[in-house]
Computed example of a mutant assay.
Amino acid sequence: MSVRTHLTGILAELTRNAALVDDAQLAAAVAEIQRANHLFLAGAGRSGVAITGFANRLMHLGKSVSLVGEITSPHSRPGDLLIIGSGSGETASLVALARKAHAGGVRIVLITMDDRSTIAGLADVCVVLPGVSPKLRAATAVTSIQPMGSAFEQISFLSYDAIILELMDALGETSETMFPRHADLE
């Protein structure tokens, strides 16, 4: 095999997985984002990397955004939204975070593979994305040529970008109107 052969296999897999995504769940997540006063985003590992990119684009849209754990994050309030990216929905630090947010009246959107997870039970909106992971408690019909949670992490990143496109349409934003919000002190 060659690297290009692997690449085309990954793209084919992601195309199949995209057909399994529930548009109504994504629309509910978009509605939560539009209503929120402030957006807090969190994830761990590679899911955390993907959600960091999402936070960046939400900021480019002019949203008030913080990554949980950053020193500049403000105090949460009811009317705020916590978006968690967690394939298993069971990462201990994220479960504790979701519990605290829930107790404080912060709404929660979970991007996950498991809608029966602990965090899913606390979430107001659960977006289930296909993938495979040794951390999943329940068997899944989805298969992957990739290791561990790669397929979930990739479809997460693509779904985040699709949400951004939907928000751009709703807000009348373009790349040109967003660019002035791009960092200049890099």
Rank of each mutant, 00 (worst) to 15 (best):
A183H: 11
L7H: 08
L158M: 15
S150R: 01
T15C: 02
F54E: 00
I84V: 15
I145W: 01
H38N: 07
Q146V: 03
F179Q: 13
F40L: 12
I164N: 09
G62Y: 03
G105I: 05
A12N: 08
A123T: 02
T15F: 02
M178W: 11
N17I: 04
R116F: 01
I108T: 01
D161N: 15
R77C: 11
E153R: 05
L20S: 07
L110K: 02
L165P: 02
N56M: 14
I51W: 08
S156F: 02
G69W: 07
I119M: 00
T174K: 13
L110Y: 06
G89E: 00
T143C: 05
G104N: 14
D22Y: 01
F157Y: 14
A151Q: 10
L82C: 03
V49M: 14
S93A: 11
V65L: 10
G105Q: 05
A162F: 11
S88K: 06
A120C: 08
T5H: 14
L185K: 05
E173K: 15
A50I: 05
A42P: 07
D22N: 14
S76A: 12
D184Q: 12
G121W: 00
I111G: 00
P134Y: 01
K100C: 09
G104R: 09
N56A: 14
G48Y: 03
L61F: 04
M178H: 07
G62I: 11
A36K: 10
A18E: 12
I71C: 11
Q154H: 08
M178I: 13
S66R: 05
V127A: 03
P78I: 05
N37W: 08
F40I: 02
R137I: 06
V128G: 02
S88Q: 07
E173C: 14
A141I: 02
G9M: 09
M59H: 13
V49G: 04
G48E: 07
A19N: 02
T140C: 05
H182V: 09
V49C: 08
V106K: 01
V3R: 13
D115M: 08
D169E: 13
L26P: 10
A151I: 12
K135Q: 12
A12G: 06
D115S: 15
L39A: 05
V125C: 08
C126A: 15
